[in-house]
Design a protein around this nucleic acid. Sequence first.
DNA 1: TATGAATGAGGTTTCATTCAT
DNA 2: CATGAATGAAACCTCATTCAT
Lengths: 208, 208, 208, 208
Amino acid sequence: MHGALNQLPEVPVLVADGVITDPESAKGRLLAASASLFKQKGFARTTVRDIAAEVGILSGSIFHHFPNKESILLAVMSEAISLALARMHKAVEGEQDVVKKFRALVRCELEAIHGFTGVGFTLLSSEWRYLSETSQKEVLKLRDEYESFHRNVYAEAKAQGLIKVEPFFLRHFLRGALAETGHWFHLDGNYSLDELVEQVCLTAALPK
Amino acid sequence: MHGALNQLPEVPVLVADGVITDPESAKGRLLAASASLFKQKGFARTTVRDIAAEVGILSGSIFHHFPNKESILLAVMSEAISLALARMHKAVEGEQDVVKKFRALVRCELEAIHGFTGVGFTLLSSEWRYLSETSQKEVLKLRDEYESFHRNVYAEAKAQGLIKVEPFFLRHFLRGALAETGHWFHLDGNYSLDELVEQVCLTAALPK
Amino acid sequence: MHGALNQLPEVPVLVADGVITDPESAKGRLLAASASLFKQKGFARTTVRDIAAEVGILSGSIFHHFPNKESILLAVMSEAISLALARMHKAVEGEQDVVKKFRALVRCELEAIHGFTGVGFTLLSSEWRYLSETSQKEVLKLRDEYESFHRNVYAEAKAQGLIKVEPFFLRHFLRGALAETGHWFHLDGNYSLDELVEQVCLTAALPK
Amino acid sequence: MHGALNQLPEVPVLVADGVITDPESAKGRLLAASASLFKQKGFARTTVRDIAAEVGILSGSIFHHFPNKESILLAVMSEAISLALARMHKAVEGEQDVVKKFRALVRCELEAIHGFTGVGFTLLSSEWRYLSETSQKEVLKLRDEYESFHRNVYAEAKAQGLIKVEPFFLRHFLRGALAETGHWFHLDGNYSLDELVEQVCLTAALPK
DNA sequence: TATGAATGAGGTTTCATTCAT
DNA sequence: CATGAATGAAACCTCATTCAT
């Protein structure tokens, strides 16, 4: 999946813009390895020695790049959300049709969850509590931006009579439902990502 | 919320049937305290000293009731699912109307998540990875029973043309959406549990 | 020297009064060993493993008695000064002659420095900087009590025309001179403690 | 205080004679910064990164000037004592009056302690134990020269009946008393250096 | 059953030192 | 000479678990 990330055409642009750390730099490789391990074993069970071993350095060297273990989690999380934000904006750019925007958002979030934009997005919820309060606030700013963008599109859909549920509820339901796909849906399984998007829209009774 | 649990009329029955540990026994109080702490701080960050302090004993004494820390988590989880199963069966008992059964299942799961049946249900997903493989298999049996019951009701609804999405997908979506309510919905907030159930059904475009 | 401490007749009284920790208890042995090592190698160079090895336990066990390494230093220091205070009061109790009081104070401080009352007194100056600010304030209260007692006796001597120098200066000079004996004077060497006291008084031109 | 050091007229001479390192050279600035930090925080708590930051270089660069951290301490110490020796010889040069020589020595030592000759002299006692045995021996040669010079002047005073205490004891007492001034006396406080010298002589009952 | 001192493995972090650039 | 990433040993500290009382 890391490989996939590097091959995405927009990555160099995002690196240049400072959205994310260069995945080929030492720090970038550290982040990718950490994200992957945090996802596999959880933050608490992942030791800095594990991370170092994954990258091929010694544990002490990690602290050249990050002041402590928690700051790695913080970096993984804020890069994940920054990347998701950037890709989300690009995905709906210029689109007027609300249904298409809705589908784009769903697809974008699923891509974020399933690693098209690098691991890390799922950690936002599963490892949230391991972030210090200060760090939580920092990430919360980005999350709020992301969430309100979603809610606004849902509100448009509601205004056009395309859905009946309140945007506030719908966003919470969808976030949960999509995050959960991280636990059961596999890209290389029986269903494609597009079929998954389709089932989500079907559930919400959204017209094509 | 613990108090609420104890006041539920069916608790003595469930205790007598061996479904759950007597919440007034030493072991029961240990489980309740553990569940609450695991939910608050996560399994990994909760120390056996924390648990002992919450119950008012010393850390060493815990090991007279449980062989190790993980077995506490296992007990919390299997009691949570057993309780949820028992209450679920009771809730749909004798009911023929599929829509009513669907609503009952949703309500039941929300009650489990929000503590009507004691804390612990949320932990099933959030702390799942801290269970050893052996323990996971043990709990999985109960979860499978629970999950397939849900899927069967959804399949009925599909057969009657009430919903369009595949039961398999719907169950996964719903599980995620409902579990997520644990992070944003509060019983003492602006909305009642019934309103929440209503919004869930609205989202799935389910007729009344 | 530890042995000497235990044989002092007043020790049981002081332990009973809560002035010092029982030197035969686990905590007391830990303190004695720590004080001795801190004196030998300095606080920074003494590892908790060193201390544990000296006492015959494992390093982790130390933290059953003290929350961290610094708190051991704090305890060593406050016990040292508390003990010195107690013995000082006893030494001048009922004495009216200023010259005799002066000699008693000098002797008392030398005894504290050279271990008659347990190691630790010298550390008060040499390892002072390793104490956190909070801990410094705590110990400072005791030190102030000790220092002002000395200054008061010197002021009496000045008032009686026995010395010419200001008490403020004299106390600072004496503290330095006596502390320094810790680096060159040895009880088992060529001179006795009484001869040392005599030389101090000679230097200050104090009549017999 | 560093500024003051550089302005002293004899510094260029001493640099030219190889007594001390040029305080404007890279090595000299490194020594000054180290001495200052060692005094503030102690040798053990001062990191090479601290020193490097103070000088404005990176930690790795330090090792182009010194083979290891301890050698910095050694250099600071031997320069301190060399400088003190040079200034001491100059101060008593041609002086016949023992009382005046005594005063000159006291003043000289106080100047060394309070920074007229650059920080570092106090470290000789406080950080002594952090020197390896080999280094201790090296500095000891210089210290012995310094100490015996003092003792000889005291012996002269004793021979002339000006003091009563043994030179051996007096030197130890004075060293301690003067070193201690580093902890409480401040040049910019209520008393001048000359008043301090006066109080020292008063204490030792030395005639004017 | 409860206690609490002790264990001991393992965690995060620090830091002097090295070395290719 | 300077850099700064990397090293690797060792530091402090945590904590589930044991066991004699």
